[in-house]
Every structure is written in C-alpha cells, then in structure tokens.
Amino acid sequence: MATRTLADGPARATAAPSAITARAVTKTFEGKGKLVHALSDVDLEIEAGQFVSLIGPSGCGKSTLLKMIAGLLTPSTGTVSIDGATVTEPLPQIGVAFQKPTLLRWRNVLDNICLPLDIDGTRNAEGEARAVDLLGLMGLAGFEKHHPKELSGGMEQRVAIARSLITQPSLLLMDEPFGALDEFTREDLNDELLRVWQHEPKTVVFVTHSISEAVFLSDRVVVMSARPGRVHANIPVELPRPRERALRNTPEFYEAIRHVRAVLDDARLGERKGEH
C-alpha cells in the first residue's frame, strides 16, 4: 500500500519541531467603521513536537490565531513567537492547510500538491513520487491528473492536506482539514495523520469542531470561548501513544471526550452569560 511506502521510507533530515508562544495576543479587525474584537488576551504555550487542537464556537478566532502563528496576520497587541523569535512573516518550516482548500483550478491534482516544490525550485522525480504517495495516503490514489472542479469538497480538502505535507514541514498548521468528510473517512485520515506525525516529528496546531477528533489526535486540547475569543481551558489528553483505531472503543477515550465536552459547554455558557 502507498501508505506503507511513505511511512516506512527514510525520514528526511528536517528541522527540529518548533515551539510556539503567544503572549497577551489581541486582534481587532476594522470593517466598515465597525471594530470586531476577534481575540482578546490570548496566552498559549505549545512545546516542540506537541500535537495541539484548538476547539471552540464558530467565530471565536481559531483561524485568526492560526494565521498569526503562520505569519499571515499580525497581532494588534502582544506577540506570537516561534522558537523564541517573534513571528513577522511566514517561516520556511511551516506547512498550512487552510479552512478552504484553495487549490489552483488550472493545475491538476499532482501539480497542486507539487506547488510548494515548484516555488522552492526543488521539484524533481523524487518529490513527485512523494506527492503520489501522499495522495494514496489521503485515499485518492489515481487522481493525479484530475482537476479541482472534478473533485468533491472533501476530496479537495485532502489534496490541500497532501500539499501542506509535501515539504515535510516541522510545524504543521491545519484549519478544520477534515471538516467536509464523513465520520469514517475522517477517522481513516486521523490514523494516517498520526502515522505521518510519528514518522516525521513535527509540532501540529489543529483546528477542529469535532471533540472526538481533537481527543484522538492531541496531546492537549485548547478550548476557546467566543466574543472576544480567549483561551478558556487547556485540557491535557493522557491517552497512551501510539494511538490505534481500537482506542476509540475504550472507556478512557469516552471519558476524555465527556470531559472536553463539559468544558466546551462551560465555555459556551460563559459566553451567553456575558451577553446579559
């Protein structure tokens, strides 16, 4: 299986995973004379090599925070730093999977996955073989020559994920990457993502609306509350690794989910109380 080739292949000598720190970060958007306070006073510490999920109500600023770590947005106040250096522009070691797949419609699937290599000027047969492997990993073997308009939303998302992995980033930023997938495909891809993560050590910041997905994947779940967005709670997930499918049927897994759900509920209630 393509999956195996990729996971068992030689690990490329990549940069060591990065640590992320956010200090008193706020973000205010100015739109049509109205100010939107997207984030208020966010403090976050992510150790190198950790898998951390961000979860919280829609509009609480998850994508905004992720874009700041990516160097695509600057905080209104406060700082975001990676390995101690303040982020001012996108760093070379990042890979980003955006909330919208953002595939180039004139490029076929293989060329879309290889776009980062084209821009680095490092595209070669080896890179393309890796792209084909990643495509197989995403369950899309044989779709190399298809164009984005021939794919479903979930398929486009998976191509975008393959693209974010092609450069073997040591810091992976994923914004609801599996949002458009059915439960079973999502679980398959969760397994594959963990396999890649175990094989190529990297820090992952993963935005999701799925509690079970967050619990299954993460070392820690960061629960955010809305309007203005802030970190409501940090929940460590103590489940053993490596995590396999069977874990999903254990009482420990359900217990962790129940706990996160309770905290998330609390975050939402707090918000509603705040409005009165």
Partner: peptide
C-alpha cells in the same frame, strides 16, 4: 486565501505572478 497560500509558501512577487496571477488572468 490564494494570496495567503502563496505568502505561506514564501513565494516572491514574481512567483506569485507566474504561478497565480497570470494563469488566473488567462481565464
């Protein structure tokens, strides 16, 4: 989003033109 993608890949202005804006303009 497209511009952000190219920024995240640290593309130069010329690369953004070549890989994004010109192909987009052809349509």
């Amino acid at each position: 989003d497209e511009v952000n993608l190219f920024r995240s890949l640290r593309a130069s202005k010329w690369q953004e033109l070549r890989y994004l804006r010109i192909p987009n303009a052809l349509a």
